[in-house]
Structures are given as structure tokens and as C-alpha cells.
């Protein structure tokens, strides 16, 4: 395989929580604490995990909506996390985003055509105003909205239609990578299916790579090539879709998958019920971050942090229990 389109190396993002009045020591939220993965051209990587595990922060860090604390973001062989705002702007065209909430992701005071035309204008993609109109019309066709819709305001559309407008805006920049930050989570089931299918069609048609951030494992199974599972700011397992759904290796992944409802009455399945809550990312547990809830935890897990290492070809997991498999694979 050729060089990956996007490479994320040991990405860290720590948010400062104000320590309070009178200069108490500031506390830090370790939202993302050493995350690495890569995405090939045309590939979909899903980032899954519970709420608050830092998956959206990864997406926003790649988009440089804030500066990262440490680590690298490499797009097509070029490091982009340390570029100045001006140097980054032309590169922004290559990575676009679709957000979760179809209502707050469109400016209520802009017409649809201005929303969709904004990236085209910014990156100077249209040769003339006629070209601009033609591009906007073509984008409306791509996301299966009527061309007349361009004259209307966002509030005149339903949630699914608004999400299509958001997708059209993302496509307008002619990106190579689209970050879908819970892009279908706010939609009801039938609309969700339509948008998922639209995203898949567009990906095939345009050869897009996608970082699909989601907590909805059913959608992930339908959409993705590979899956990365996050827990408390770290990736615990990465594997191709078939591997992760058929033979999850990390105890957390196993528990997560056992929570997916099976649409079959009387289906016999074993659920792994985790005890307790996710620990606070302000004060994450030492050693393996999952040891406070892991049914298999032993002494070593409390002191030593397991590394993400290959257990089989293309399958990585971070667990001391899998080290035998890891050394065999290596």
C-alpha cells in the first residue's frame, strides 16, 4: 500500500481546567493522551468509544480547530499541526468536516447557496460567478437536494436535509478526507440510513477517505473498513471491521460489542456488564486506564501501561493479556 493520506502520531490534547480562584494549581483534562493511527486514501476508519472518551477531540485536533498539546498530524507526508494559520489555510481544503447537530452546523442567517459557496470562494475554486453557480448546483445534485433549494434558508429544511447541506458544504472544497463527527447520530433511523448510504455513495464516487467518529456500532459496521476503539483518551484496539466484530481482543472492545442489541428475539448471547463509571479524564487511572473496570485485571495492569502492539496482521491491541499473541505476531 502507498503512503497513508493521514497519519496521526502520538497525538495529545490536554485542556486546562481553571484551578479556581487565587492561583491554585491548574488541573488538566487528558482528553486525548497519545493517539496514533493512519488512514489510507479512499479508506474509512471509524473511531468508536463512549461519550467523553476523546474521539471528537481527535477530529477537531486534525482540523486544527485548536492547537494540539503534543504529537503530530501528517497529511500526505507533510506535517500540518505546527503550520501557521496562514500556511495552513490552503491545506484546509483537503480536510473537511460534517458535524453532528444539523441545526447548529448551518448559519441561520445565510442562504443555502452562500453556505455551500463559502469554501468555493475561500479557496478560489470557481473561475467565474457562473462557474460558482454551476458548482453549487452540481453539489445539490450530488447530495440529492433540489437545485431550487439554494435560494432558501436553513430553517426551511428538515434535519436530514440540513445534514445534506452540511455534506454539500464539506464536498464543496473538493477534499480528500472528510471527518464525520457523529454525522448521523442526531438523525432518526430512516433518515440515518439515507445519509449513511449517501456518504457511502459519495465515498465511492469521489474516492474520499473518511474518519467516521461514532458511538453507533451498527452504523460503523455498515460503513467502515477499519475500526479504532478509544477508551479514556487512548486507542485500545485497531483492526479491520471483520476482525473487530468477529474476534475482538481487548476486554473493553468485547464489552462494548456485547452491548450492541441483537435484532433477533431469543438470541442467545453473553453480555459483559462493566462495573462502575468511566473514570474522570482529569485524573485517569495509573497503569492500564481500563483496569478499574476490567474483569480480567491483575497486578501488572495497575502499574504498567500496556502498549498498542500487533497481535495479528493488521490487528493491534493494548492489553497485557495479549502479549503472548503479540510476541508471536512480531
Amino acid at each position: 500500500m502507498s503512503a497513508p493520506l493521514l497519519e496521526v502520531n502520538d497525538l495529545k490534547k490536554h485542556f486546562r481546567v481553571r484551578g479556581g480562584f487565587l492561583g491554585r494549581a491548574p488541573a488538566w483534562v487528558y482528553a486525548v493522551d497519545g493517539v496514533s493511527f493512519e488512514i489510507a486514501r479512499g479508506e474509512t476508519l471509524s473511531l468508536v468509544g463512549e461519550s467523553g472518551c476523546g474521539k471528537s477531540t481527535v477530529g477537531r485536533a486534525i482540523l486544527r480547530l485548536f492547537d494540539v498539546t503534543a504529537g503530530q498530524v501528517v497529511l500526505d507526508g507533510r506535517r500540518i499541526d505546527d503550520l501557521s494559520a496562514g500556511a495552513l489555510r490552503p491545506i484546509r481544503r483537503r480536510v473537511q468536516v460534517v458535524f453532528q447537530d444539523p441545526f447548529s452546523s448551518l448559519n441561520p442567517r445565510m442562504r443555502v447557496k452562500d453556505i455551500v459557496a463559502e469554501p468555493i470562494r475561500n479557496f478560489g475554486l470557481a473561475a467565474s460567478s457562473a462557474d460558482l453557480d454551476a458548482r453549487v448546483a452540481a453539489l445539490m445534485d450530488k447530495v440529492r437536494l433540489p437545485r431550487e433549494a439554494v435560494e432558501r434558508w436553513p430553517h426551511e429544511f428538515s434535519g436530514g436535509q440540513r445534514q445534506r447541506i452540511g455534506i454539500a458544504r464539506a464536498l464543496a472544497a473538493e477534499p480528500e478526507l472528510i471527518i464525520c463527527d457523529e454525522a448521523v447520530s442526531a438523525l432518526d433511523v430512516s433518515v440515518k440510513a439515507q445519509i449513511v448510504n449517501l456518504l457511502q455513495d459519495l465515498q465511492q464516487e469521489l474516492g474520499l477517505a473518511m474518519l467516521f467518529i461514532s458511538h453507533d456500532l451498527a452504523v460503523v459496521e455498515h460503513m467502515t473498513h477499519r475500526v479504532a476503539v478509544m477508551y479514556l483518551g487512548k486507542i485500545v484496539e485497531v483492526a479491520p471491521k471483520r476482525r473487530i466484530f468477529a474476534a475482538p481482543q481487548h476486554p473493553y472492545t468485547q464489552a462494548l460489542l456485547s452491548a450492541v442489541p441483537v435484532p433477533e428475539p431469543g438470541a442467545n448471547r453473553q453480555r459483559i456488564i462493566l462495573k462502575g463509571d468511566v473514570p474522570s479524564p482529569i485524573n485517569p487511572p495509573k497503569g492500564c486506564r481500563f483496569h478499574t473496570r476490567c474483569p480480567y485485571a491483575f497486578d501488572r495492569c495497575r502499574v504498567e501501561e500496556p502498549k498498542l502492539q500487533p497481535t495479528e496482521a493488521g490487528h493491534l491491541a493494548a492489553c497485557h493479556l495479549l502479549e503472548g499473541a503479540a510476541s508471536a505476531a512480531a
Partner: peptide, 12 residues
């Protein structure tokens, strides 16, 4: 607002 983030990502 996400639309401001989207505008930043869109190079505005």
C-alpha cells in the same frame, strides 16, 4: 457554534 468551526475548516 459548529457553523463557526465549519467556516474555520472551510478556510474563512
Amino acid at each position: 457554534q459548529p457553523y463557526v468551526d465549519a467556516a474555520v475548516a472551510a478556510g474563512t
